[in-house]
Write a protein that binds this DNA or RNA. Structure first.
Lengths: 106, 106
DNA sequence: CCTTCATTTAACGAATCTGCTAAATGTTGT
DNA sequence: ACAACATTTAGCAGATTCGTTAAATGAAGG
């Protein structure tokens, strides 16, 4: 699996995406606090965290009985890099569409 | 499923990601030509194209016996937008990491 | 019409994902 | 050592995914 596609896979679950967004907003957070935010069981959240960790999206830090999770910025950057690699395509195309819209509006 | 997570889901398969990258590079392409590039069967590629279409990542245009596929730039832009929404997080964090590296190097 | 070409749909099996509950692990405080 | 707490692992059911081959669809040309 190409590396960026495995990052996409990790983000493809709505629950995992929300976990990542929460961690980016609030920084390092213990597993238990993440659990509280979701209606699913603790083990289910734990599994999601483990998927994210395996995919290299989060760091896990052991602190007493807690595990602190945080997003690895490089991972998000890889997504950004992927879009930037193709920026010429979508930016140019978007401009063409906008131009066509302006043309239509006249 | 939040919209961006369904885009991530569509891109989470290596074969689909490669299809999208090919289409971005080469523009509108008939299904048959896409098939030739992959070792999997025609029906398998057709299914991937249909997944991409359902997720809003590609346009399908009927041209005689051919179906021409092309990437919808807005879809890629949504990925870009998502990274940009969190840019402050990963950019700041990357800088912090870089600063730490520079600190270590001294 | 009938055939051929391009592509999709159907039907199926193997593998993977996601959730659950119950049990295990490891840590802290008594 | 023991009890309480935080989290993960095990084991299982149901849904989904991805590939295959065979059959269906639909346009183009003789």
């Amino acid at each position: 699996m190409s590396h960026v596609s495995s990052i996409f896979a990790a983000l493809s679950d709505p629950c995992r995406l929300e976990i990542i967004e929460t961690l980016m907003r609030e920084g390092e957070t213990p597993a238990g606090e993440i659990c509280e935010r979701f209606d699913i069981s603790g083990p289910a959240v734990s599994r999601h965290l483990s998927v994210l960790h395996t995919a290299g999206l989060v760091n896990r830090k052991v602190a007493g009985k807690h595990r602190l999770y945080s997003v690895r910025p490089e991972a998000i950057r890889q997504v950004s890099d992927w879009t930037m690699d193709h920026r010429e395509f979508w930016e140019a195309s978007m401009n063409r569409i906008e131009a066509a819209l302006r043309e239509d509006a006249r």
